[in-house]
Amino acid sequence: MSRKSLIIIALVLSGIAPVLFAQDNVTPQRKHAIDSLALEKVRDLSKYISIIGDKGTSFSEASRVIKRADELFATGSKMGVSTLASPAVNYFTVDNYFKRLMALNYIKVKIDWYSIHYISDLEKQPDGKYVGVVTIYQRFEGYGAEGLKYTDVTKKDVTIYVEKKHTQINGMPIDFWDVILGDMKVTETKKQ
């Protein structure tokens, strides 16, 4: 196995999850690889939301997961929430959004994710980073003592920033593309 292959494997195992490329334009093949990486991050987010919302999750575990979820987002990212009744957007910090989810007043919460997702094209912004939006759908069920109390379906449009980064491993320079999440718009689409 070549030295370069070993370094790539090391990067993958180190959690950087790189998409390694030499140039900085986005070809269809590269876009495909970046999409996979973006989806992986969004799936991590979905998983964390499910754990944080789950009433069976202990407070300390939920707090730990909130920290992990926070790390997926760029500093200063906001959650914008609108409902069917009120289309005006309410803004929350990422941390507050998760804390509110953790504090919901139900005996049991069930959060499911539709397998459908939609990934936009990537557009270059003036700072050289690429930006895209991944759309996913979540179904939420909140149970009270007398059974199902509330259910809704929300659309989540998640901003993704894609940036080319550089690192050195064993003195060897490596370029890779990294994905970080940004603002997220949460829109209620169905309520019962």
Partner: peptide, 8 residues
Amino acid sequence: SAQTIVAP
């Protein structure tokens, strides 16, 4: 995974 993907 049971936690993440379900087709309602």
